[in-house]
Amino acid sequence: MTDEPRAWQVVLDSIERDLLEGRLRPGDHLPGERALSAALGVGRSSVREALRVLEVLGLVRTATGSGPNSGAIIVSLPGGGMSALMRLQVAATGFAVADIVKTRLVLETAVASELAAAPQRASLATAVELLDVMESRPLPEAEFLSIDAQFHLTLAEASGNQVIAATMAGLRNSIESYARLGAATLPSWSRTAARLMLEHRDIVAAIQSGDAASARKTVHAHISRYYAEISLPTFSILPTGVSDAAPRGT
C-alpha cells in the first residue's frame, strides 16, 4: 500500500526526472490526474498536491476547462536551489507587488545594460524565438504572459550572471502572477499585448545596437509602464496568483 502522506513526492520526482532527462519540455502537456495516478500508483489527491508544488516552483501552469490550453502545461525547466528557495518563500508568505517591480527594475535594467555593453555580444537567439512565438498568432492572456516572463528570464540567463539568473527564475512565478492579475484590469488586452510585443523588440534592438544607456532606459520604461497601466492596489503575490487581503508596501 502506498504511503499517502508522501505519495505526492513520487509524482514530483517522476515529473522532475522526465524534465531533467528531456522526456518533457516546456510546452508539453502532462497526462491527466487519472492517468498519472494509475501510472504511478498513487491517489489523485497526491497528484493534485504534486502539481500544486510544481506550480509554486514555476515549472507548470494549470488551467481548468477543456481545449488545448487546459490541464497542466510545462512552462520551465528545474533551476538551482536559490530559485527554489525564493519560490518557496512566495508559497509561504508572498512578496509585495511593489517590491517585485522594484527588484525587476534593478536587475533587468542592469542585465540589459551589461548585455549591450559587453565586448562580445551574447546570443539572444532564444529570446528572439520566444518573441516569434508570441507574434505568430493571437495567444490567450495566460499563455502570452507565461512566454513574456520566460523572455525576461532568458535575457537574465544570457547575461551569464548566475545569481541574477537564479533570482529572476525564483521571481518568475510572482512576475507572471501579478501580470495576469493586472491584465484583468486593462481596458483592452489586445492593444496592450500589441504594445508589449513592440517593446520587446525594442529591448532586443537596443541591446544588439550596443547602446547600454538606451537598453537600460527601454527596459525600465517597459516594466514601469505596464505596472502603472494595470494600477493594481498594493498586496502580496501568493501561489497561483491569489492576493492576500492585507495591503503591503507602497
Rank of each mutant, 00 (worst) to 15 (best):
G71T: 00
A158R: 04
S123R: 01
A142P: 02
L12I: 05
I73L: 13
E141P: 11
S83L: 02
T126G: 08
L198I: 11
L88A: 09
Y226H: 08
A184E: 15
S188M: 00
L171H: 00
G58M: 01
T192A: 12
S76Q: 09
S190A: 14
E157D: 09
V42F: 05
R104E: 13
G160S: 12
A169H: 11
E4V: 14
L232C: 04
R191N: 13
E55M: 00
A39L: 07
D132A: 14
K217D: 15
N161S: 09
P78F: 08
T240Q: 14
L181M: 10
S70C: 08
L40I: 08
G94S: 07
G32Y: 02
T250G: 13
S188K: 02
N69H: 14
V106I: 10
R216T: 02
S188I: 02
L115A: 03
Y226V: 11
P31G: 01
G22W: 02
R216F: 09
S45E: 15
A91D: 12
L131N: 09
I237K: 00
R225C: 07
V75I: 15
A127T: 00
S177M: 08
A149K: 07
V97I: 15
S243R: 13
N173D: 14
G41Q: 07
I73K: 14
L181C: 08
L232R: 04
A213T: 14
A179N: 12
R248H: 15
V111A: 03
A50T: 01
P5N: 05
M1R: 12
A156I: 05
A228W: 05
D211C: 04
T62R: 13
D202R: 14
S174F: 11
E33L: 14
L181I: 11
S123I: 06
A213S: 14
L57I: 01
V128D: 03
S70I: 07
M168N: 11
L51T: 01
E16R: 13
P239T: 04
A110G: 09
R61I: 01
S66L: 11
S76A: 14
R25S: 11
G79L: 06
A246N: 10
S224A: 15
T218N: 02
L36R: 04
T240L: 12
D99V: 04
E114Q: 15
A84K: 12
L238M: 12
V242S: 09
A184Y: 03
T154D: 01
E33I: 08
S70G: 07
R44T: 15
G241P: 06
V242H: 12
A122G: 02
